[in-house]
């Protein structure tokens, strides 16, 4: 790490706050993508950010139903960038994660010989877990806080900025 990198902490880019609802999530993701594009972030990192953010937000939407008695079904995002990639924090006031832990990273089983038995769900957390780094969840003052990173290069060390 050289002196330049040491001096460069994460830079906040955009912090949208929006209802935990499908179409509001779509609009927020498009705004985040436009911001990242205007910052000169490349297509691959932007794609990975969209995919990971969608899964994280959809999970909150699914658990923000009125039955959960959530009085503020909204999501707050904080998107920041540094030389290593994108840092993301999501906050919501929905119900806590069962056991307070991250769901398993395993994909649902696929039986290629029986297409009619293929799973239609269960992909969200495996996608999120395989695509992100430093994924963590915590709960404070009735608020869920989910954090993760998208590395600038998909395979850090193999090529690009993280190689050194």
């Amino acid at each position: 790490m050289n002196a330049d990198e040491r001096g460069m902490g994460p830079r906040a880019l955009i912090s949208p706050h929006f209802p935990a609802q499908d179409t509001a999530v779509r609009d927020a993701l498009l705004r985040v993508d436009a911001t990242l594009r205007s910052e000169g972030i490349g297509d691959d990192l932007r794609d990975r950010t969209q995919i990971a953010l969608a899964e994280a937000c959809n999970n909150i939407v699914e658990h923000a139903s009125p039955y959960e008695r959530c009085d503020d079904p909204a999501i707050t995002l904080d998107i920041a960038s540094d030389r290593g990639g994108i840092q993301i924090t999501l906050r919501d006031k929905g119900g806590p994660m069962p056991d307070g832990r991250l769901p398993a990273p395993d994909l649902p089983p696929l039986d290629l010989d029986d297409p009619l038995s293929l799973p239609e769900g269960g992909f969200g957390w495996p996608i999120l877990r395989s695509m992100t780094r430093a994924l963590s969840i915590s709960r404070r003052n009735g608020q869920n806080i989910l954090r993760f990173r998208l590395p600038a290069a998909e395979f850090p060390g193999a090529q690009g900025q993280n190689a050194l």
């Binding site: 969209q50 995919i51 969608a54 959809n58 799973p119 239609e120 769900g121 992909f123 969200g124």
Partner: peptide, 8 residues
């Protein structure tokens, strides 16, 4: 763009 709901 597709998410896990679209995939489902």
């Amino acid at each position: 763009f597709i998410d896990s709901s679209g995939l489902g």
